[in-house]
Design a binder for these strands. Structure first.
Lengths: 348, 348
DNA sequence: TTGTATGCGTTATCAG
DNA sequence: CTGATAACGCATACAA
């Protein structure tokens, strides 16, 4: 083994590889970006010494030189379980279109503005905002100032200056309520997470379905806010206590958010109420926690893969056709039947 | 308002700002990086037109030109709740030292290697690996190949080629067990998450404490693996079922992981066992879910702020003094008393 | 404060 | 395939 290590400790460059192999820099470049113009044997040797030298192409130099950007910027909230799966799906989908992904987190001490600015610094081709990290008004404002395509994933409603990907909260909740009705339930409560951006639409789905069946609505208000209580988990406890305080609790509850639903289930359990024996529950989102064997929550699934795919498609479309109108993609939901619903007992 | 918009739709550069104001490019540069050499009035005007033009400094160009890097690369697992708070704390702490943070996710389809490679492409000054995303052997291998400082946060044990930040799992668990003993418990089980990197040390803390009090150990093995079940939540159910199947369950359980502890609590509750009335529980990590009013888990807190601070300090130290020996920082834990422990009832 | 110069590592285009 | 050359946006040194 007689490769003399470079004397400097700076990261290896394409020039280093070229020199070591006695070939030209641009041939190395051709290999690294899989461009035509190099033999299979050359490609092999280049990749080999690249590994040897621990070479990693300088992203900055690359984006600087490239005429167009091949990066998606993704803004997400790390504490939000529903966003993880979307972020995960994003990587392979972006890669399929030739794009890299760079993440930017929104935290308690770091708002959307700095998160987006960081991405602009990376000269992203588009910014994907996952989750309802910001409300429609903020979004509208952002899409006016940012000069690259913006895709909002999982936000409440469409906007004029940016693409939107969301599920049909109305139809999704309607399906959940229909399921409960089909099991014989008539007293079905709904937890209204008023400060959740998508809340209004989901509540509408509940009210319409109940009215169609000529059933009275029973809306349980819960407070909580996105920024404090990332996934409205505390709101689930709050709703549970409201229900527990009643003389006649409903026989079923539609919870428009899995975070709240899981906490609600837990709180009921700790107070001796069994799900689904005493009360049936339907959630919304199908977060990983809903799938735990200890939870087995029947829920309206928002397929994260589909959301991610729609987001990538929207971004690609707007990059390739900047003049096209912003699109609103409504992703289908599906009801995932697990163990949190039972037929109404008619032992009266 | 008579600012003529630039005719091109390329992002604004410092040259654009300089031209619009009739000043030199490098003066703009001076302002943007807060370097000495510009009057207060000039700084104001430059910042103003920068905003107007939607200017964002080109990160790539900047890192390319700079002689040294001012970026920390952070590898994390999005689905892991204990890592969020560390990541959150990282931003302000890094900024205090003049560093930016760039995130790189490990997901089901994206291993540690690609995650680190992405960061190397950004020419980070150091890589921070949050959580036990990889086992000690992998880490050792990585720190051999990567030519920049590596800091492993929350991993099991120290390494030879990289810095390590971790809590004292032995002492932490010991404190938890001591608490249970002080409440009168003598039958205290321990859930061994064998595949969790930090498991061995925590188990040792349990066994030593029990022996010191001349109490018999009761180790409940639980399977589950980091990559499948990000936070060993399913393992909590498994352990619960093991306990429920017994004729004489222990009066208390030390669970070396909050994810498992919460699921264990939930599973017990669903089978009619109340915490802490029927069984006392101590967890480890103090994840956000442990603080929910529906959970109120007494747990060994690994302060994420302290972990982040130690990680940043280690990275800075190794960047500034590359020849110094790798350090192992042990962060103190503290027992957070909540509602999951009660004194042993002596109604026998 | 300004101008001038140079180079960071890469992509890209040419003519050989 | 090579070799030459330019350029991306910015930081930095230096002389005015």
């Amino acid at each position: 083994m007689e490769h003399r290590p470079r004397t400097t400790d700076r990261p290896a460059t394409m020039a280093d590889i070229a020199q070591q192999l006695g070939i030209s820099r641009q041939l190395v470049s051709i290999v690294m970006r899989d461009a035509p113009g190099a033999s299979a044997e050359t490609r092999r040797r280049v990749r080999e010494t690249a590994d040897e030298l621990g070479f990693a192409p300088h992203t900055g130099a690359r984006t600087l030189r490239r005429t167009r950007s091949w990066t998606f910027g993704v803004v997400f909230v790390p504490s939000h379980p529903a966003e993880h799966e979307i972020v995960q799906s994003l990587y392979p989908l972006a890669a399929a279109h030739g794009y890299d992904v760079v993440l930017s987190a929104v935290t308690g001490t770091r708002g959307v503005q700095p998160a987006v600015d960081e991405l602009l610094g990376h000269r992203c081709a588009a910014v994907l905002l996952i989750g309802s990290a910001l409300d429609p008004a903020e979004l509208e404002d952002l899409s006016g100032r940012v000069q690259i395509p913006l895709v909002a994933v999982g936000t409440a409603a469409g906007g004029t200056g940016h693409d939107v990907v969301r599920s049909d909260g109305r139809a999704g909740v309607a399906a959940g309520v229909e399921h409960l009705v089909s099991l014989g339930h008539r007293e079905i409560a709904f937890v209204d997470l008023a400060t959740m951006p998508a809340a209004a639409l989901r509540r509408a789905g509940y009210e319409q379905t109940m009215q169609r069946h000529e059933l009275g609505t029973d809306v349980v208000l819960a407070s909580g806010h996105y920024t404090d209580d990332a996934y409205f988990e505390e709101s689930g406890s709050e709703a549970a206590h409201t229900l527990l305080a009643r003389d006649e609790p409903p026989t079923a509850v539609m919870v428009p958010n899995d975070g709240s639903a899981v906490t609600l289930l837990l709180t009921l359990a700790r107070h001796g109420l069994q799900v689904p024996r005493d009360i049936s529950l339907v959630g919304y989102d199908d977060i990983p926690a809903a799938r735990l064997s200890a939870v087995e929550l029947t829920t309206v699934r928002q397929d994260p893969e589909l959301m991610a795919r729609a987001a990538v498609d929207a971004a690609v479309r707007r990059i390739d056709h900047p003049e096209s109108d912003p699109l609103e993609s409504i992703v289908d939901t599906s009801l995932v039947l697990r163990g949190s619903c039972a037929a109404l007992r008619t032992d009266g």
